[in-house]
Design a protein around this nucleic acid. Sequence first.
DNA 1: GTCTATAAATGGATAGAC
DNA 2: GTCTATCCATTTATAGAC
Lengths: 225, 225
Amino acid sequence: MRNAVGAKRIVTDEACMTKLVAPTPEAGSKPAQILAAAGALFLENGYGAVSMDAVSKKANVSKATLYAHFGSKDELFRAMVACECASSALNGVWDKATALPAAEGLRMIGLEFVTFVLSAKALAAHRVVLGEAHRFPELARAFYEAGPALTFGRVNAYLEDVNRRGELAIPDIDMATHQYFGLIKANLHMKLLLCLTERPSDLTIQRFVDAAVDLFVKGYAPPAP
Amino acid sequence: MRNAVGAKRIVTDEACMTKLVAPTPEAGSKPAQILAAAGALFLENGYGAVSMDAVSKKANVSKATLYAHFGSKDELFRAMVACECASSALNGVWDKATALPAAEGLRMIGLEFVTFVLSAKALAAHRVVLGEAHRFPELARAFYEAGPALTFGRVNAYLEDVNRRGELAIPDIDMATHQYFGLIKANLHMKLLLCLTERPSDLTIQRFVDAAVDLFVKGYAPPAP
DNA sequence: GTCTATAAATGGATAGAC
DNA sequence: GTCTATCCATTTATAGAC
């Protein structure tokens, strides 16, 4: 049933780990319509509350067509997540950040990161993947690898660099990256995931990023000479 | 359909905000059996993937009995969440922490908090509530109020105290509490929510708490006199 | 490839006996 | 209060015509 014919979007590499392969089909094609509809519906309502009927209607496509392209609801869900993961790379920040003093670089990275992570789309994606993490563990892993893990690695490298330059004195880079992630998201991420508050203003976000960077930089300041 | 007869578990106060009322029925009674079964199933599989049939079977109860006690699947879900929220108060830590120096108090609070938050049950609860936050926004709010919000308030009060004593110099208590939450959970919480790793050992947890407190205390250390 | 129509199963919820 | 048996809507998935 799973991985039916034509389901090339999930592949398994030698390490036996599912990965998300760039799935975006030509714009305007039926698969694209379907994925768009599935994205909207799944992200809005979650896996269980969305029927294939609803997807086919929203995509202006018959159910038979839907099943011709995606062999099952599972597969459609996986493809949709893969599709939504495409835009999470935070491209372009890293080079610019490297040229700046640590505090400024961290501020820039943080602002970019938190703006993305608190966006409606990213929040919805987190919600739906988290909600189904038990039943789709490989998907959850693939989601993490395709998004947060990349950023984690980049921040890690950045901190290593800053450390080498002597701007900060970080004994455990990996731990510091963990902390930076936590600090940047603070409690805002969870509150927004729970739909407890509207998306904060840009000013508020800036305040949180500034506070996070201040604390981080002060906490990891090299000892005075 | 909702809030049918006998559905006293969700009430609405004057401010029009749903709250979770202590719902634990006598142990051994049918409602208790049902709630236990519902808890196990919903927390394991999520809302959509669990049928009332499955709940009734797991509870060794007929579906009619199930519906006699809980008017609908929604209501059962709400009652289950309310029931699972009962044990999240972290009682007892606060008085002890107040008697300690700031770093030690924060360490103790953090250890208790993170141990709870990373427990299998708390993680499962977060997953299922997050997954349905769109469709049950009042439930998500009630969940937050019954758990995280309480802890947030306590930490806030604790930091205010520490600040007044002059042990730390915190310009914005609310922001600092946000940061403490973030630091303590670091990226571990998300990774565990995504089922990406086994529950870390007590030693690992301690390492994260220690690192968080070190950074926090150093970052908010009062200026040298 | 795409559609209409339908099969087959499962789900939430209820009726009526005890 | 509890059970057995059942109704009816919805859902996933497919068959067969164009």
